[in-house]
């Protein structure tokens, strides 16, 4: 079953001058159709301006498409009576960790969503406990968010969404402003939520390395889907990715270069282990041959 069903979406950014006259229209999405299966982990890749963030905002009714429909668990985002239900089903985490924490204490922030939904008090406490545990932030319950690191703030934001009991979480470049260890923590957390809780994850990023473990990668460019496949297939298309100004993980790139130089290595190598598995036997054989020639 598809939790997200976006069909033939068009979206424009309209720039108006001081007199409210239309100055410029930029088409951000054109005829975009994406459906996402429940329980899957999907990465959306694309450089800045490819339309990926615009798409994210359509997924919980923060903005509405000019044309086309977005269905979340069968609910149309245009249907205002379902808006709260849509937003609670498909939660969002944004890029800037500082600008999405509302409360002055961690637990109060996590409680913000359920409070808005009118969840009874005892149930809120239970949900907050549970959500903080799931992101590994229970020790910081009573801390001020200002004293947390970027990665910790993002995990609090994820807990805030989890406390609404969502089916799906859309993360719009959640790691762009984090240091490597913060990025690792956030990624680990979303992968765990996907595996253990069955939450559908839509992870939007421009870091290719973060997409390696996804079930599916969608590459966007110029408001359209240009690639949509499993990671291994996507990472086989190194030249195309480069043309889309996306970088390929170093190991994938090295494997690709070695293959171009004539080594019998398959396309779409994702990890160091995989690469080693191919080059060690080849290099050992070459070494033996070299040694034999010397003798």
């Amino acid at each position: 079953m598809n939790i997200i069903e976006a069909a033939h979406i068009f979206f424009d950014y309209v720039q108006k001058d001081e007199n409210d006259q239309i100055e410029e229209i930029n088409e951000a999405l054109s005829d975009l159709s994406i459906s996402i299966e429940k329980g899957s982990f999907v990465c959306i890749l694309g450089h800045n301006g490819s339309g990926k963030s615009t798409f994210a905002k359509l997924l919980n009714g923060l903005s509405l498409p000019k044309e086309g429909t977005v269905l979340i668990s069968g609910m149309d985002t245009r249907d205002e009576s379902r808006l709260l239900n849509i937003r609670k089903t498909c939660g969002m985490v944004f890029q800037n960790p500082d600008n999405q924490i509302i409360a002055n204490v961690v637990e109060e922030d996590v409680a913000f969503g359920p409070e808005n939904l009118g969840v009874p008090t005892e149930e809120i406490v239970r949900r907050v406990d549970d959500a903080l545990k799931k992101v590994g932030m229970e020790a910081y319950r009573l801390n001020s968010p200002n004293r947390l690191s970027g990665g910790q703030k993002q995990r609090v934001a994820i807990a805030g969404v989890m406390a609404m009991k969502p089916e799906c979480i859309v993360l719009d470049e959640p790691t762009a402003m984090l240091d490597p260890s913060g990025r690792r923590d956030v990624l680990r957390t979303v992968h765990e939520l996907n595996k253990k809780e069955g939450i559908t994850i839509v992870h939007i990023t421009h870091y290719m390395e973060e997409a390696v473990d996804a079930d599916r990668i969608i590459v966007m460019d110029d408001g359209r889907v240009v690639m949509d496949d499993e990671p291994r297939k996507i990472f086989s298309r190194v030249d195309e990715l480069r043309n889309l100004s996306l970088s390929v993980p170093q190991i994938t790139e090295l494997a690709y270069e070695l293959r171009q130089a004539g080594m019998p290595i398959p396309l779409g190598i994702l990890t160091r282990e995989e690469l080693l598995q191919y080059i060690i036997p080849l290099m050992k054989r070459a070494e033996r041959k070299g040694a034999g020639a010397d003798a």
Partner: peptide, 10 residues
């Protein structure tokens, strides 16, 4: 390069 996409970074 913080927060930039790969192209901006390069």
């Amino acid at each position: 390069t913080a927060g930039l996409d790969p192209k901006g970074r390069d």
